[in-house]
């Protein structure tokens, strides 16, 4: 049998090749991502993923947010304090906002400069760190004293009062100042002193908090060492607690915890930035549980985008504890106070 040789039309081949080229081109153009929407294509080792670390075991969360959420009205909130009747005092912008226990705005006290820290004494006086000095205001908001300026480098990030002692954390000079209630400087606490076994404060950014427990011992966060140091009023270092770890029990990053408060039972409440977490420790520094993790604080998966260097370095949370044990969390970027109460047993 003869095969009839078939002549293939060369124009058909050219047409087929052309179609194939057009299809291939179209497919590759469609597959080529010039918009970046399909991601970078980098392998997993190039990804910085905190998602896993941000997850908090629900069994460890001992608190729930109460219905009370207070907007501070500030562009930049800085610090929160409570008085014995549960009134909230927030330092921000160039003022102090006072809110009733139910969150109702009561008063706005204008200041001469930007406040960074404040505390309210049992007699209702307000001690506030403004710029390079401390101002004392009456309960009505009238200035009653302005203490000596501490120099251009002073950054007063925390104040606590106990009986006749006032302790002021100065992040700029990396030192705690000890005053009497009249504003006379009594001494300095925490300067590096190998003879007294005092390591010195390491403060990478303006986060440097302190509190005084009922026994009069001063508790100071050493943020660069991720621990809380305990000093006598004479400046002797007694002991320290705090574990450096991303684990829920520890503190991670270079400046944590950024905030510290002491509860009515003598336990501690801490707040961290980076992995935004508010946690509870007992009076010996033992981990008790979580008040709120990134998910509860609405910070989960947030990529930090900041507009100014100060914003990039700032952020974070400030905490205070009420006489009833409720935890007040000031979100300094969202300018809101959130209140967390201990969950009832069995819930």
């Amino acid at each position: 049998m003869h095969r009839i040789p078939r002549r293939i039309d060369s124009s058909l081949i050219v047409a087929a090749l052309l179609i194939a080229a057009v299809v291939t081109g179209a497919v590759s153009i469609l597959r080529l991502d010039t918009t970046g929407r399909s991601g970078s294509g980098l392998s997993e080792e190039f990804a910085y993923n905190l998602q896993k670390l941000a997850a908090v075991d629900p069994d460890l969360i001992l608190y729930a947010e109460s219905g009370l959420r207070v907007s501070t009205g500030f562009r930049q909130s800085r610090a929160i304090a409570l008085d014995s009747s549960g009134r909230m005092y927030v330092a921000g912008d160039r003022a102090i906002g006072v809110f009733g226990a139910a969150g109702n705005p009561e008063k706005l006290v204008e200041l001469s400069g930007e406040p960074r820290s404040l505390t309210v004494s049992d007699d209702g006086k307000i001690y506030v760190g403004v710029g390079d000095h401390v101002e004392v205001l009456s309960a009505e908001g009238q200035q009653v004293a302005s203490w000596n300026p501490l120099g251009d480098e002073a950054v007063l990030t925390s104040i606590a009062k106990h009986k006749d002692d006032v302790f002021v954390a100065d992040a700029g000079h990396r030192i705690v100042l000890h005053y009497d209630a009249a504003g006379t400087l009594v001494g300095h606490i925490g300067a590096k002193n190998p003879d007294k076994n005092v390591p010195g404060f390491v403060i990478p950014s303006p986060h440097f908090d302190l509190a005084v427990s009922r026994d009069g011992l001063l508790r100071v966060v050493n943020p660069g060492r991720n621990r809380i140091e305990t000093y006598t009023r004479d400046g002797d270092l007694e002991f320290a607690w705090g574990e450096r770890s991303v684990d829920i029990k520890g503190f991670c990053g270079c400046c944590n915890p950024v905030s510290l408060a002491i509860g009515p039972d003598g336990g501690f409440v801490t707040a961290e930035k980076g992995l935004d977490r508010v946690k509870v420790y007992n009076s010996d520094g033992g981990f008790v549980g979580v008040v709120a993790g990134p998910a509860q604080l609405g910070k989960e998966g947030q990529l930090k985008v900041c507009n100014t260097p100060e914003e990039c370095q700032g952020g974070g949370l400030d905490v205070a504890v009420g006489m009833d044990g409720r935890v007040y969390v000031l979100d300094v970027t969202d300018n809101v106070i959130r209140v967390f109460a201990k969950k009832e047993a069995g819930r």
Binding site: S40, A47, Y48, P204, C254, C255, L303, K304
Partner: peptide, 27 residues
Amino acid sequence: YYEYTIDESLCNGCGKCVNGCAAFGNG
């Protein structure tokens, strides 16, 4: 204290360190 410097011949601009620094540090 420690100083951190970049060897640009090895860096590919992936930004992993940028995220780590921004999340916990000073950015």
